[in-house]
């Protein structure tokens, strides 16, 4: 079970959090302008990486804040956490 360093509360047990899938998928500003394929790309298509993955997590049984996590899915190590709206750390690609 992970230990997640909530950027607002500090290190907490994974059972306090819920995962929200891939991070940095921005909701299109003008969905009506998009073709079915483009909208489907936003709506359905997600990466499933072995290696370094950017994820959204929510401290749902805590401060209820959403934030981003960089996790290596091959060993489950969390490499970095950062707040919503912040740019991902540059050393992870």
């Amino acid at each position: 079970m992970f230990l997640i360093n909530c950027p607002f509360c500090g290190e907490r047990d994974q059972s306090e959090f819920s995962s929200g899938g891939e991070a940095h998928i921005v909701r299109p500003k003008q969905p009506t302008e998009l073709s079915d394929d483009e909208w489907a790309e936003y709506l359905f298509m997600r990466k499933n990486i072995k290696g370094i993955q950017f994820e959204r997590w929510n401290h749902v049984h805590g401060c209820r804040k959403w934030f981003n996590v960089v996790r290596d899915t091959s060993n489950d190590k969390i490499l970095s956490v950062y707040k919503m709206g912040e740019k991902p750390p540059v050393n992870y690609k």
């Binding site: 929200g20 921005v26 909701r27 959204r56 929510n58 749902v60 209820r64 959403w66």
Partner: peptide, 10 residues
């Protein structure tokens, strides 16, 4: 949760 998600992230 859904409303909070949109408010905080989108």
């Amino acid at each position: 949760s859904k409303l909070e998600d949109y408010l905080q992230t989108e």
